[in-house]
Computed example of a mutant assay.
Amino acid sequence: MIKLFEDDNALAYLGKEIGTSRWIDVTQQRITEFGNVSEDRDRMHIDPEWAAVHSPFGKTFAFGFLTVSLLTRMVNDVVARPFDEASTLNYGFDRLRMLSPVLVDSRIRGHFMLKALSLRSPVQFRAVYTVTVEIEGGEKPALVADWLSVTNVANARLPLRGAGSFTEDLV
């Protein structure tokens, strides 16, 4: 796990894979609970008996947004939250692509590359990660995206070494 927000040499991680999360089990219970929380009753996801007959996969599969929602769990395995974190906001996605369904009883994990990092103010970081969600034994990933986040900290930071200013985005 890297301490990206406390590392004076954080820019050394740019363009590099910074880590891989632990495996996450995608069980029918997890899929059904997500359907309950999101109030999505799509039978392809929540009804194993129905899906056995009607699904092109012969079984249920995860909601795409369930996979997206697990990214926070995945990044927390790779990047340590700052000791003085005030908040972290999911700022958005660029080029989000869901490439392969995550079938019930599969396992997934995230691979993270740091695409950009900037200190937008003395107390606010902006990070862009390219994340690829691998399906164990799968031929192609479940999803690939550039994920933008903003992390606010309580204690002011100096500009990142080599950045030149607080507002410069580093790519």
Score class of each variant (00 low, 15 high):
residue 43 R to D: 05
residue 45 H to K: 07
residue 46 I to V: 02
residue 47 D to V: 03
residue 48 P to A: 01
residue 48 P to F: 01
residue 53 V to K: 12
residue 54 H to G: 08
residue 54 H to K: 08
residue 58 G to A: 01
residue 59 K to H: 07
residue 59 K to C: 11
residue 59 K to Y: 05
residue 61 F to A: 04
residue 64 G to Q: 09
residue 66 L to Y: 02
residue 66 L to A: 04
residue 67 T to H: 07
residue 67 T to W: 00
residue 69 S to Y: 03
residue 71 L to A: 02
residue 73 R to Q: 10
residue 74 M to P: 02
residue 75 V to S: 01
residue 76 N to E: 11
residue 76 N to W: 10
residue 78 V to P: 05
residue 78 V to R: 04
residue 78 V to K: 01
residue 79 V to E: 00
residue 81 R to E: 12
residue 81 R to F: 12
residue 82 P to I: 10
residue 83 F to Y: 14
residue 84 D to Q: 05
residue 87 S to W: 15
residue 90 N to Y: 13
residue 93 F to C: 04
residue 95 R to V: 08
residue 98 M to H: 07
residue 98 M to T: 04
residue 101 P to R: 12
residue 102 V to A: 06
residue 102 V to H: 09
residue 103 L to T: 04
residue 108 I to C: 08
residue 109 R to Y: 10
residue 111 H to N: 15
residue 115 K to A: 15
residue 115 K to E: 15
residue 118 S to Q: 11
residue 118 S to V: 00
residue 120 R to D: 05
residue 121 S to C: 07
residue 122 P to K: 09
residue 122 P to W: 09
residue 123 V to P: 03
residue 124 Q to E: 14
residue 128 V to I: 08
residue 129 Y to I: 06
residue 130 T to N: 10
residue 135 I to D: 05
residue 138 G to L: 12
residue 140 K to T: 13
residue 141 P to R: 02
residue 142 A to P: 03
residue 143 L to Y: 06
residue 144 V to L: 07
residue 149 S to Y: 01
residue 152 N to I: 13
residue 155 N to A: 15
residue 161 R to Y: 11
residue 163 A to T: 00
